[in-house]
Design a binder for these strands. Sequence first.
RNA 1: GCGGGCGUGGCGAAACUGGUAGACGCAAGGGACUUAAAAUCCCUCGGCCGCAAGGCCAUGCGGGUUCGAGUCCCGCCGCCCGCACCA
Length: 868
Amino acid sequence: MSVERYNARAIEPKWQRIWDEKGVFRAVDDPKQPKYYVLEMFPYPSGKIHIGHGRNYVMGDVVARYKRARGFNVIHPMGWDAFGLPAENAAIERKVHPRAWTYENIDTMRAQLKLLGLSLDWDREIATCHPEYYARQQSLFVDFFSEGLAYRKESDVNWDPVDHTVLANEQVIDGRGWRSGALVEKRKLSQWFFRITAFAEDLLAGLDTLDRWPDKVRLMQRNWIGRSEGLTFTFDLEDADGNLIDDKLTVYTTRHDTIFGASFCAVSPDHPLAVSRESAIPDVAAFRREFAALGTSEEAIERTEKRGINLGVYARHPFVEGLRLPVYAANFVLMTYGEGAIFGCPGHDQRDLDFARKYDLPVIPVVMPADADAATFAIADEAYVQKEGDNTVLINSRFLDGMSVPQAKEEIARRMEGAGAGRRTVNFRLRDWGISRQRYWGCPIPMVHCEACGVVPVPKDQLPVLLPDDATFDKPGNPLDHHPTWKHVDCPSCGKPARRETDTMDTFVDSSWYFARFCSPRAAEPVKREIVDYWLPVDQYIGGIEHAILHLLYARFFTRAMQRCGHVGLAEPFAGLFTQGMIIHETYKDPAGNWLFPDDVTRHEDGSVTVTATGAPVSVGPAEKMSKSKRNVVSPEEIVDTFGVDAARWFMLSDTPPERDSEWTQAGIEGAWRLVQRIWRLVGETSALAGGEVAIDAYGPAAMDLRKAAHKALSRVGEDIERLRFNVAVAHIYELANTIGTALQAMRGENAPDVAAALREAVELLVRMAAPMVPHLAEECWTVLGRETLLAATSWPEVDPAMLVEDTMVLPVQVNGKKRDELVIARDADNAAIERAVLELDGVRKALGGAAPRRVIVVPQRIVNVVA
RNA sequence: GCGGGCGUGGCGAAACUGGUAGACGCAAGGGACUUAAAAUCCCUCGGCCGCAAGGCCAUGCGGGUUCGAGUCCCGCCGCCCGCACCA
């Protein structure tokens, strides 16, 4: 029999239309039903999507469709992270208004996403740049402000003196502004902050409850929060002549046990003590300027060579009479951490050691492994830093000698506290979140500066503070700031003329609560409490690993802040998190070094690649993240047009584990297309052979094998999807398709109603287990099989547990850990019977060579190992 | 610099909680069908030795723990990612 080819181009839009008309993906706010919230990180509308963007949406869609089939009320929304810098750059470069540019991109990308056949509830679509959204964000800001969670303080920014603008770290290239090329200065600006540190302890503790998050993300957040327990204490200072001076130096340390190894103190170049010496020591001023030129990136600061400058003051050692430590301003000490000042112990900190070697400062080991010899223990190029659990002993430390590190810490803390010179402190690396951006295309911060009343929030009934449409982008600086009228308002408190805040919010704010807004996207308040209580938390969140720290931490903070203001009833927004890998693609360059699109090149049989138009040779680069600039992109339209979206979805789920990067190849998409055709053929041939359901009294062995294979596959695919192991689910579906194909061939010309019935059952199960991945094909097959329901609204098939058990098992048999034979035995055989049977096996007897075994280890249902 | 991750055939990979390494797919080679091609189907496919039966080696490298290690521990090597104003 011949079966016509599956015509994806005609069939896929048909089912998309039907799903849409029947509204099967609409999420209904019905607290009586068990809910499941699937969310992929929403996209920035940058222009067009390429096929690489599709991967995480497809993964989320598989989960959404599967959970729907499992009986959950699924919410699977989509929106746009629509504020941000690129829109403003487009405004500058192409003279388009950021709004027009953004909404045009949204329209393009929405149409592209719809091609992917995602089971999204488009009725809940939101865009963060829409006043409906940012109005509510401003209202949340006002709430946070009244709770003390939003405040203003001075902080450092990268300042471009030509463009009059603040630069992102990534816009600072070799110390210069990316657009102007001007040398960037670090400058203090009064900025808005969210008090994320108020939740530092809770954000850390909360990580322990997130058992469906990847360990590595939790670890990254833990390290980012950076909780440490240490000692804050104060040194007396003296001048070069040994006279006590008024200033004191407060430091924070976690290594107070090494106080007898201290050989210097160091403060940040921004520390008041360094600033105060600026006039006295000209080099200090120069050093501070140099430090400022490093910008605000912690990476740049830590990578630079460790240098310092002697401030000409000395810290008196708290325990050694007459010992004084020179105080340096050092470029590796951050003002934002601890007290902005440290004491340096070169023996036990690599940075301190590098610094000490450079400036010829003493290196005194004060901690060594417990089994080392104090007389000979010395530090060369590497500081000795003990690991947790190491057995250590203090040396060269007077009253601490012989103690372990924890004992010594305790002793110093006790003495310092007793003397009133210090206190035990808990410190965090986490800093408050600076949200001020001196930009146009963002959510205006709803505050007014009044000379009489100070900083006053815009009352909620006067929100939103709308962005003015008529901003201009041809002048450097913040368009809101030079708008002729926008910032001039009357003070909401006293009514006198006042000035609007012209900073807008970091776009991370927009993405910190969108998942909550999706629950009640058109509500007048930010969220409707009873509805958000039903839908949250997000059960499965899917996105890139690049968001492992900032976005996820900010969203966790935001949820806590909203909880404090009564908007939500929980602290953790994302119960399950999955971080997917990117789609990558080879890059192509012509002889002149121009990047080429995959479409522009031809791959020949011998593996060579040429420019299709000219025949010129192409140099092929390794697979990299798809990017417009390198042109290694594949458009979804083209793929859908040629192979259909199901083939594309299948390919994106196949082969590579979802958390790893996956390479897009022509061979891969062709293979996926073949699978689509193959399922179609299997369904066609089977339905021709076994039209409807037939009741069978007794299945023969061939039919039973088929049924068992089908139910095993069903059981595994279900587990695989639950665990998000899509590539393994795909493999199990291939396996079943192979089994069905073989059975179909064996059936040719035979009249075996039991096998025909088993085939039909197996094929139906195949279609249903593949449905979350290739939903259009599955719907069409479902129809061919004579079913009249909508598969997208049909529940997941039940596994028949009787089909999963076998009466015999095959046990691999090892001798000394090497496999020598296999034992086929009844599943319920006891260990003694297994042992006896094993020793009879040829392979075992041969390997033993007549000797008696010393031991036989039987691992039930798994393996047998004979120890000779 | 600090922090995190990864490493298995020609390629993407699988291997539950320490229990048969290489399932499944891609590529390649051989064959069937066909006037021919496409499509489809069948066979082979980690390396070495062997006519075969079979044996030895093999999960980046070097050690260790264990009856048994891709999996656990220690030490290296290589690659990738994040570092607070890109989103």
